[in-house]
Nucleic acid binder design. Structure first.
Lengths: 215, 215
DNA sequence: ATGTTCAGTTGAACGTGTTCAACTGAACGC
DNA sequence: GCGTTCAGTTGAACACGTTCAACTGAACAT
């Protein structure tokens, strides 16, 4: 049946991606391993990028589950951000050997696997929801002025951390973990300070900039 | 002569990149247009990425010249940062249609064209020197604690702005310019505030983080 | 003159992602 | 039964980046 074939191609592709990475996994190998013709894989998935996109969806789902477990424990913004970001590093760890390749594919603006693409909508929503929960459930509560924009900013920060992770050659991605350990309290502190008169202006500028740039 | 051939391949490639973009410029087309065999192009340049790298070097040089003209006018950190970044947007503007492709190539960690690669050393040094001048020549002077790390941070910020620029579909890259107009005074303000007791801790954290993460 | 070397050059060949005209067979209408 | 349709499937074909064994010819040694 068609649906079976599609699922078979999908799972075969994901397995090979995990085993061999992106470049070393050829469309011919995927098709052969799945027992179908190359053209058939293309009937079900428009391109190799669309298959990678499926991998992202898997990983994002894993991360969302792990992140929700962290968020269930409560905590302040710093603790929650730290937990969610570290859960991300853990969820991605399995793929670090090929992470560079995959992020490369993801960052290509035209790519289906780009975090900003229409095709990635599902992963993106899933991931942004986690950050929304992160912000909304934090106690003490995040200042109201920031509550609306912060989730998206944190999601972007997570993308930045992931970009750093790609280039991180240290064992077990220690440097990325160090970055997270440093950046979470830093963001937490800045959010707290944003209510102070001296920083009020800067905070407003950030928000105004985000809004101006988005439209 | 060999050097002539190399220069010819180089200039032909750069012309075609400018005219057609990265993907649409094939190695065969470069070779044919230059009147040499395909293999000959590979004798002089290890890969297509290495040819793109030559384009980056050109653009970086243009940007450095424009940036130095801006810096010669003096000014405070905000004005200088704004000027240098806007000069960057202008220098890159010609390539915006294909910018996405090129940055994609650049960001691939293994790529010769990556801003962090050994091969890009020349462009990187050139560009980082500009930001060092930017910081050192600013008046009022940048706080001593920041003076050492800030140039590299600003260089990274420029990379971030460039990444944004890639995705910026607005006419004349208005949104990127808005981003620069907003982010320059923001950075300027934060640097000024970093001396205040309330922010002193956060500023130290940022520097400690940068150093911890770099090693 | 003749032989030797080797940087420079050639173009066919390889494996890749992707396309596409052709084929298959189950489902459906009559 | 029979014809028609079309989602699903096939594998050869295309253009690409890249490799490489073979060739060229100027420079030099004998």
């Amino acid at each position: 049946m068609s649906d079976d074939t599609k699922a078979l191609v999908r799972s075969t592709a994901l397995r090979l991606f995990r085993e061999r990475g992106y470049a070393a996994t050829t469309m011919r190998a995927i098709a052969q391993e799945a027992g179908v013709a190359t053209g058939n894989a293309y009937y079900h998935f428009a391109s190799k990028d669309h298959l990678v996109q499926e991998l992202y969806l898997d990983v994002t789902r894993e991360h969302a589950v792990a992140a929700r477990a962290v968020l269930a424990q409560g905590g302040d913004l710093t603790a929650r951000l730290r937990g969610v970001m570290l859960a991300g590093v853990d969820a991605f760890a399995e793929y670090h050997a090929f992470g560079a390749e995959f992020v490369t594919v993801a960052i290509r603006p035209g790519s289906a696997a780009s975090p900003f693409s229409t095709e990635s909508g599902a992963s993106r929503e899933l991931s942004q929801d986690v950050f929304r929960e992160l912000v909304e459930g934090a106690s003490p509560a995040v200042p109201t002025g920031l509550r609306e924009e912060l989730p998206e900013l944190l999601w972007l920060a997570q993308l930045g951390v992931t970009l750093f992770w790609v280039y991180d050659g240290s064992p077990d991605q220690r440097r990325t973990r160090t970055l997270v350990e440093g950046i979470a309290p830093l963001i937490g502190r800045l959010v707290r300070l944003s209510r102070l008169p001296v920083l009020r202006g800067a905070a407003d500028d950030v928000l105004a900039l985000v809004r101006a740039v988005r439209s």
